[in-house]
Design a protein around this nucleic acid. Structure first.
Length: 831
RNA sequence: GGGCGAGUGGCGGAAUGGCAGACGCGCCAGCUUUAGGAGCUGGUGUCGCAAGACGUGCGAGUUCGAGUCUCGCCUCGCCCACCA
């Protein structure tokens, strides 16, 4: 068989299957990405949020991990000692549900999933240091989660309290406030509306750190996350004021208000139905009405209680309080719009200046009195307003009338302080963190209850309190551990007598509040972390993950670090110096990916067809990393073709299409070198800024330039070699396999990932000529090609001589000529 | 109801106040291939034969010049939601 002469000798087509797995095995065997504790170079701790081992790695995991992997790889090439670990957040409900639904033990289900996901993770070609892997459900890990609980307990930061808790009737579990979502207050996991239950629960005292958690001055975090945490903490400054009541031997009602300046406008008081004084103060005549209202309020679902658009309801309890500043007698009501958990659970109602109080007053025909004059100067009649500006002036307010409202806040509060009936106060929306879970698959809380000595910590040398293997997983509303007699039996550390073991386990967010510390010394069996290693690696230099953790994990982790610092265990203030959030990859239907919707995209098929590099690059190319978007794989052919071009231009074998004369050749090489260095600068900047899409676009441009140069016959030149080598080095973090393969084939030393990041030479990036747009009245009319050092007068002269410009000037003199050096010329016509 | 963010070709998207649509997808034409696929080259905002005109959700404004800044609307997304 003969063939006609081909224009280009065939080079081997690129086939990722032939080299991707090979290089991953080599890197692993060489421990190329292992972070060394004894490395003297600058450390960089890069971290991406560890996944829950649900069983399958989907496209979102690839998207989330590839971004930070690129940055980690680049910083590594820049000479830093980079740690980029991975692990599994392996306690939690789905494992237990699997046990209930399918009879698989949570430990088995979890271990199988981890094994599968670990294998899937490896196909991504990320530079994870697997020698540091952390699995939170492993006793070697939760041993130290329990030890941390003990530290918090000893420091007075863990306490037990009876509390009305949010309860998911489907999952049969207590939920933290952060796990209740939406207007209908549903369970974050299964969507079932929650109900209230009273239970004895363990709490972490996060509110102690409310103020410090509001301070983000030393960390580089996205503005939206800082805002969400700030709003969640919800700091309000105001006053607590005591309103004496008309009853013997009853303490005054203490209210919290942010508007003490409006106290002369208080025409009634409202207590939360749960307020302890309700029972004491209610008169016999009102007793029946009050009791039935209280019962109804307590039985009411949160949906009704929290809804803002429903009509206000309440009941007069028959008692009266006294306004401490004007001695007015004002009626006391109860209403469910006053919440027991915020402030003092009681308010002074100022219907003229608070919309809610106004609505209530209208419903029950209570008096409305205006005491703050708005900037307009007109006191409205019968209509509420709440505006609060520096222009407002008080009226109907005794000695404070005429004072500016902003000044009156301080003055009135001070007066109340002086007479012993008030104080400056701050209130927070933030509540303490409820960590108890009535579940099996979590870290057991290391507490035993002694009839004589109460709640006692399990001594450190008896940790870990391990989960028993054989238990009954039927969802009964109590922890499966409660039916395990052997687990329950304990002895009191104080008296040695029989004691009952705590059967609640910890919220999995406790596990994830310190896993980044464990990565520093994951195999240390004698302590939670090695202080020297933590001193070396922490804090995390760059943390990446989903913005959905804004008020959950990301706030708890900050709290943990601050608390442990105050206990003397750590010497820094914040766990994560810089934070970046990736966007979410949605299903093709623009909905959040979930198994129940059946819109989960699995990358395996694409990886098999195009290789891991193409999938990585495509994910980074579809748009800004922090934006995400619906999944649509149709564009992957573009990056696949790009990688194919990189492949063929990097290998010898193709002949020059045409040989330019020497002068042109020189020019082409200079242009190629210029393009190379411009690309170095741009890609370096883009990667640090997480703009992987534009970084890739610029690499594609360089590849296109190289292709054109080759067709011009400069393939053998030094400039050409430099351009190709640079392209491979800049691309290596995004496409680690193909670049390694080509680097080797080009005879360069192993490994491309150990080469220094290309150095940018600004002198080589300077353009010889520039093209200046010429506008007339801001509209493009012509272009000038000039050298960068052409004087301004010369450029203006050339612009005015342009026939296109002349046409629009139509013989007139220009009103002015704007020349922005190196940018453009704008000829302004007379008006 | 409050807060934050976003609206740019058929699609994903690019653009320190300075050439709108980089880079890709798709589409069209050509080359190559027994064919299909893959690959390669060129074209591709809209209207128009063309010259040209018009174009970044809508309406004003600032400016020599606005996708970008200001004000007012509309739409979508996320977070919070009776927090006194």
């Amino acid at each position: 068989m003969t063939t006609t002469t081909q224009a280009r000798p065939r080079v081997e087509r690129f086939d990722p299957a032939t080299y991707e797995a090979k290089w991953r095995e080599r890197w692993e065997a060489d421990q190329l990405y292992r972070a060394r504790d004894d490395d003297p170079r600058d450390k960089q701790y890069l971290l991406t949020m560890y996944p829950y081992p649900s069983g399958d790695l989907h496209i979102g995991h690839w998207y989330a991990a590839t971004g930070p992997d690129i940055v980690a790889r680049k910083r590594r090439m820049q000479g830093d000692n980079v740690m980029f670990p991975m692990g599994f957040d392996s306690f939690g409900l789905p494992a237990e549900n699997a046990a209930i639904d399918r009879g698989i033990h949570p430990a088995v289900w979890t271990a199988n999933n981890i094994e599968r996901m670990r294998a899937q993770f490896r196909t991504m070609g990320c530079m994870f240091d697997w020698t540091r892997e952390v699995v939170t459900s492993d006793p070697s890990y939760y041993h130290w989660t329990q030890w941390l609980f003990a530290q918090f307990f000893k420091a007075g930061l863990a306490y037990r309290a009876m509390a009305p808790v949010d309860w998911c009737p489907k999952d049969q579990v207590v939920l933290a406030r952060e796990q209740v979502e939406g207007v209908d207050r549903h369970c974050w996991r299964c969507g079932t509306p929650v109900i209230k239950r009273d239970l004895e629960q363990w709490f972490f005292r996060i509110t102690k750190y409310a103020d410090e958690l509001l301070d983000f001055s030393d960390i580089d975090w996205p503005e939206p996350i800082r805002l969400m945490q700030t709003n969640w903490i919800g700091r309000s400054e105001g006053a607590e004021i005591d309103f004496p009541v008309e009853a013997d031997r009853v303490e005054p009602i203490r209210v919290f208000t942010t508007r003490p300046d409006t106290i002369f406008g208080a025409t009634f008081m409202v207590l939360a139905p749960e307020h302890p004084l309700v029972d004491v103060l209610t008169t016999d005549a009102q007793r029946e009405a009050v009791d039935s209202y209280v019962v109804a309020a307590r039985r009411e679902s949160e949906i009704d209680r929290m809804s803002t658009d429903r009509d206000k309801t309440g009941v007069f309890i028959g008692a009266y309080a006294v306004n401490p500043l004007n001695n007015e007698r004002i009626p006391i009501w109860i209403a469910d719009y006053v919440l027991p958990g915020y402030g003092t659970g009681a308010i002074m109602a100022v219907p003229a200046h608070d919309e809610r109080d106004f609505a209530f007053a209208r419903t029950y025909d209570l008096p409305i009195r205006y005491v703050v004059v708005p900037p307009s100067g007109e006191v409205p009649d019968g209509e509420a307003f709440t505006a609060h500006s520096a222009d407002e002036v008080l009226t109907n307010s005794g000695e404070f009338s005429g004072m500016r409202a902003t000044d009156a806040i301080g003055a009135i509060t001070q007066q109340l302080v002086d007479i012993g009936l008030g104080s400056f106060a701050v209130s927070y929306r933030l509540r303490d963190w409820l960590v108890s879970r009535q579940r099996y698959w979590g870290a057991p809380i290391p507490i035993v209850y002694c009839p004589d000595h109460g709640a006692q910590l399990v001594p450190d040398d008896e940790l870990p309190v391990t989960l028993p293997h054989d238990v009954d997983f039927a969802p009964t509303g109590v922890s499966p551990l409660q039916s395990d007699a052997e687990f329950l039996a304990a002895s009191c550390p104080v008296c040695g007598g029989p004691a009952r073991r705590e059967t609640d386990t910890m919220d999995t967010f406790v596990d994830s509040s310190w896993y980044f510390l464990r990565y520093c010394s994951p195999h240390d069996d004698s302590q939670a972390w090695d202080p020297d290693r933590v001193r070396m690696w922490m804090p995390v230099d760059l943390y990446t993950g989903g913005a959905e953790h804004a008020v959950l994990h990301l706030m708890y982790a900050r709290f943990f670090i601050k608390a442990l610092r105050d206990m003397g265990h750590l010497s820094f203030d914040e766990p994560f110096t810089a934070l970046r959030n990736q966007g979410q990859i949605l299903g093709a239907d623009h909905q959040r990916m979930s198994k129940s919707r059946g819109n989960v995209a699995n990358p395996d098929e694409l990886v098999e067809r195009y290789g891991a590099d193409a999938v990585r690059c495509f994910l980074m190319f579809i748009g800004p990393w922090d934006q995400g978007g619906p999944w649509n794989p149709t564009g992957i052919d573009g990056v696949h073709r790009f990688l194919g071009r990189v492949w063929s231009m990097s290998l010898p074998g193709e002949t020059d299409a045409s040989a330019p004369v020497a002068v042109e050749r020189d020019e082409i090489e200079r242009a190629l070198r210029r393009a190379t260095h411009v690309t170095i600068a741009e890609v370096s900047e883009d990667v640090e800024a997480f703009r992987f899409n534009t970084a890739l676009a610029k690499l594609m441009e360089l590849a296109n330039t190289i292709t054109r140069a080759r067709e011009s016959g400069v393939a053998g030149s030094a400039a050409f070699g430099e351009a190709v080598d640079t392209l491979l080095l800049l691309l290596a973090p995004m496409a680690p396999h193909i670049t390694e393969e080509l680097w080797a084939r080009r005879g360069q030393p192993y490994s491309i990932h150990q080469q220094p990041w290309p150095a940018y030479d600004p002198a080589l990036a300077v353009a010889e000529t520039i093209e200046l747009p010429v506008q007339v009245d801001g509209k493009l009319r012509d272009r000038l090609v000039v050298t960068p050092d052409t004087p301004a007068e010369e450029i203006e002269r050339m612009a005015l001589e342009s026939e296109h410009v002349q046409r629009y000037l139509a013989g007139r003199q220009p009103a002015r000529v704007v020349y922005i050096a190196g940018k453009l010329v704008n000829v302004v016509t007379p008006r």
